[in-house]
Computed example of a mutant assay.
Amino acid sequence: MIASLKGEFSIVRCLVDHGALLDLTSKDGRTALHMAVQEGHAEVAEYLASCCPSSMYVETKSGRIPIQMAAALTSERQMAGDRMTRYFISLSGTSRMLAHMDRSGRTVLEDAVVANQIELVKWLIQEHGATPERLDALGRNGWHHAAMMGHVTMIQQLQALTTTNTSLDQADTWDLWTPLMYAAKNGHLDCVRCLLELRADKTKKDKLGRTAKDLGK
């Protein structure tokens, strides 16, 4: 686990050759594969997954499997996250991984949206049938997650990949907030402008009777 966390590929390979237990988990449910993924060590992660395919489905205490952690990587680790996500799917198939939800009801697609992995999101939707309209445990879809983070290009991408505007005005099940409300509340002005240009309904009200304009004050 320590070698995987540090990306020490030669040490990992030596330990595997000598019988290291790749399905062993930490107190929070992470395997060596989880640890390699979270640090963006793509070469190590791919090796571990190929040696122990079952580890790709081991869940942490929060219900997250390695592919979700890969898709969620940002900044300098984003490219490694994209690479690992594609590799895991190529190694194991699509349906089970795309359908897996963590305790918050999020799938790999939502993780990729939050991380602003634009090309990966496009690939998951177009090539593997991922659905940005699906709802997490709080009734939030891909547009909600993109709006929360202020990802303007991601919202535009989601709109381009779908044929209906209904998801643009989807109200969550917690506060009845729409994507526009999340963007306004979080001060993402460019995102608000984008959503309005896409004809988001600015008259919708949350469970307390507030509009997006009220939340943005």
Rank of each mutant, 00 (worst) to 15 (best):
M1S: 09
M1R: 04
I2Y: 09
E8R: 10
F9M: 11
S10G: 04
L15Y: 02
D17V: 02
D23I: 10
L24D: 12
S26V: 06
K27C: 10
T31W: 01
A32Y: 00
A32D: 02
A32M: 03
H34W: 04
Q38R: 11
G40T: 03
A42L: 02
C51V: 05
C51E: 12
Y57N: 06
K61F: 04
S62V: 08
G63P: 06
I67P: 00
I67N: 00
A72E: 02
M79Y: 12
A80H: 10
R83H: 12
T85K: 01
F88N: 00
T94L: 05
S95C: 07
A99L: 10
D102T: 07
R103Y: 10
S104G: 15
S104Y: 12
T107R: 11
T107P: 00
V108C: 08
E110N: 07
A112V: 03
V114G: 01
E119C: 09
V121C: 13
K122F: 08
L124N: 03
Q126H: 10
H128D: 09
G129I: 09
R134S: 14
D136G: 03
A137H: 06
L138S: 08
N141L: 08
G142K: 02
W143C: 03
A146T: 03
A147C: 10
G150D: 06
T153G: 06
M154F: 04
Q156V: 07
Q157I: 08
Q159E: 12
L161K: 09
L161P: 01
T164N: 14
T164I: 08
T166H: 15
T166A: 15
D169C: 14
Q170W: 10
W174M: 15
D175Q: 14
W177P: 00
T178K: 05
L180P: 00
K185G: 00
N186F: 08
L189C: 11
D190V: 08
R193D: 12
L195R: 02
L196Y: 03
E197K: 13
T203Y: 12
K205H: 07
L208F: 12
G209L: 07
R210L: 11
K217C: 12
